[in-house]
Amino acid sequence: MNLLRFFSRSPESAPAARERLQVLLAHERASTGGSDLVNKLRDEILAVISKHMKIDDEKVSVKMERGAQVSTLAVDIEIPFEAGKGTRKKAA
């Protein structure tokens, strides 16, 4: 059996690795371009809201999801008890 394996060499795997990487990185590079946009949006949204009330920078989440047809931007900001009425404001 070992002899058989020796002679019937499996096909080269490096081209597959190369192709996988190219597809993967093309996708990832495109989405990191988007995360810069998300960071910018986050900073500007924060600046606008903090003009009117005190918010904790750490308790803000901005998510962008890309779909084939529609992309969504979800902003979740937690407003501290003292600043508002202890409610969570959610916009999507």
Binding site: E12, S13, A14, P15, A17, R18, L21
Partner: peptide
């Protein structure tokens, strides 16, 4: 060289 590892150039 056997094609089982990414080459330096890759």
């Amino acid at each position: 060289e056997r094609g089982d590892m990414l080459k330096v150039d890759d």
